[in-house]
Write a protein that binds this DNA or RNA. Structure first.
Length: 491
RNA sequence: GCUCCGGUAGUGUAGUCCGGCCAAUCAUGUCGGCCUUUCGAGCCGAUGACUCGGGUUCGAAUCCCGGCCGGAGCACCA
């Protein structure tokens, strides 16, 4: 600990600049958890929790636990368990331990019983609305006065009752100024088959109960969660006190709003079922698989999330911000290619034969060692119709090739040098050789598809490669069969 | 309605705890210049913010009070 390496110092300063604050009350190592509900794949909001936990885990050392919170059988998508792990892997977040709550129902039963024995929980058979009426007036229902033995007896009978007949409530403070905190439900009956564990249980813990038991048992030191859990943290503290457990450090961050995107899993699922979206990776969605398909890199998301940090104030993420960060990642990696998406075949008239030949162009201007693309040029090319429309009667330069002029519906050779192009203020555009073009599709963020033509060098690309289609923008190659299909990322 | 919590440039963020070094940081965006056979990148420059009103103080983004605006929760969901 005497000499910090230069890397450590640089890293320290960097995180300071990023503004990710230190965790409060860290003693040695930390134990953190990422605890999603397996109702669907992860979205950008989850990425925040995942990255933050991961970052703190890396900063302090300790343990990061993945916990699947599937205690509501109705809100479980059996496919989600797998998808969540895939998504986390894509994010580069590794976990030391995985816990599935539906494997632990028995354990929650034991703690529930213990709580009854402690006299801190009671079986409540009031109808929900009746309890709420009383609770809102700070009045206890009669169930609250049941003896421990009566409670135990009812508890044993609970599995034989049906949904809604009874719940187990945690005693808090019936006079608590926030009605939401008063005597919350710990266990309830669910008559619904659990997608993972079937019908072996019908008495399930509520999130607040299961979370508290697990956080304690797993020795979680710091709980990072959204501010929508503010009241839950307050509720959970009562349980910690009843059991005599140490309360972890709760840190609440604000809501994340995503420009133009419905982040909620339930809305996405509905849209998929209704056919509005093509699937979990539909470009409209804010799921990680959707943004990944569009060529957004996890590095960009990570930088964004660490910058946003754990502030409790809400934040609005704009796509421009993500694109800006992503461009920094992609710029270096993406090789350049020509493609046009409103192709118009033109024959250049009066082209001197000396200009025909093969044009060499760097794959990446900053990395000459990546080599060249070869573009055969014989005077017959595809240009973008929009470029032509915008340049009627003006000189236009085909990149690395010749200058032309579009006049009276025809294209004529004008000159050849870049100097001439500059002199005539020519716009410089990309082009595709007509003799060796390849059909491509470009899926836009609104899921519309542009059909176009690209230079033949794109044949060397593999699915998942990200390129820069010059003057069009960055795009990720998704598949090459039956046709080369790109997803547009951003300019 | 009740309970709780926020409000720094277009957006995100640092600074707020322990008032002065803040005529306020960095990122992204936008605009301009240079460079460059495109766009982008790079380099240089510009742009633009402490929600409002009082108070305390020699001094307030920072402390206090009030207003305004915004958010979260008020489930037998997580």
């Amino acid at each position: 600990m005497k000499n910090k390496g230069i890397h450590e110092i640089v890293k320290e300063r960097k995180t300071e600049e990023k503004g990710l604050v230190d965790l409060p009350h860290v003693e040695g190592e930390v134990v953190l958890r990422f605890a999603p509900n397996p109702s669907g794949p992860l979205h950008i909001g989850h990425a925040r929790a995942a990255f933050l936990n991961h970052e703190y885990f890396k900063r302090y050392g300790g343990k990061l636990i993945l916990r699947l919170e599937d205690t509501d059988p109705r809100r479980v998508d059996p496919k989600a368990y797998q998808m969540i792990e895939e998504d986390l892997t894509w994010l580069g977040v590794k976990w030391d331990e995985k816990i599935i709550q539906s494997n632990r129902i028995n354990l929650y039963h034991q703690y529930a019983e213990k709580l009854i024995e402690l006299g801190q929980a009671y079986m409540c058979t009031c109808p929900g609305d009746e309890f709420k009426r009383l609770k809102d007036q700070s009045q206890a229902c009669t169930c609250r006065d049941l003896s421990i033995n009566d409670n135990l007896k009812l508890w044993k009978e609970m599995p034989f009752m049906s949904e809604g007949e009874a719940v187990l409530r945690v005693k808090t403070d019936i006079n608590h100024k926030n009605p939401a905190i008063r005597d919350w439900v710990a266990m309830r009956i669910v008559d619904f088959e659990h997608p993972r564990i079937g019908t072996q249980y019908n008495v399930y813990p509520m999130m607040n109960f299961a979370v508290t038991v697990d956080d304690h048992l797993q020795g979680i030191t710091h709980v990072l969660r959204g501010k929508d859990h503010l009241a839950n943290s307050e509720k959970q503290k009562y349980l910690y006190h009843h059991f005599g457990w140490t309360v972890p450090e709760f840190i609440h961050y604000g809501r994340l709003k995503m420009e133009d995107v419905a982040l909620s899993t339930s809305q996405a699922r509905k849209g998929i079922n209704d056919g509005v979206y093509t699937g979990w990776d539909d470009p409209h969605l804010g799921t990680l698989r959707a943004v990944s398909k569009r060529g957004i890199r996890k590095e960009a998301l990570e930088e964004l999330m660490l910058e946003i940090g754990v502030k409790i104030a809400d934040t609005t993420i704009t796509w421009k911000k993500i694109y800006g960060l992503n461009r920094n990642v992609l710029e270096e990696e993406a090789n350049r290619y020509f493609a046009v998406f409103h192709p118009r075949k033109v024959v250049i008239k009066y082209l001197p034969g000396s200009f025909k030949g093969v044009i060499k162009r760097l794959k990446h201007p900053d990395f000459p060692d990546r080599g060249y693309r070869m573009l055969p040029f014989d005077g017959i090319v595809y240009l973008d119709q929009i470029d032509l429309n915008n340049n009627e009667n003006k000189v236009l330069r085909l990149m690395d090739s010749v200058n032309i002029i579009f006049k009276d519906g025809g294209i004529t050779f004008h000159s050849s040098s870049l100097e001439d192009a500059r002199k005539f203020n020519a716009q410089i555009v990309q082009w595709v050789p007509a003799t060796s073009s390849i059909d491509v599709e470009l899926v836009m963020p609104d899921n519309s598809i542009l059909k176009g033509l690209a230079e033949s060098s794109i044949e060397e690309l593999k699915p998942n490669d990200v390129v820069q289609l010059e003057r069009v923008g960055f795009a990720r190659l998704d598949e090459i069969q039956p046709k080369r299909k790109f997803y547009f990322a951003h300019k």
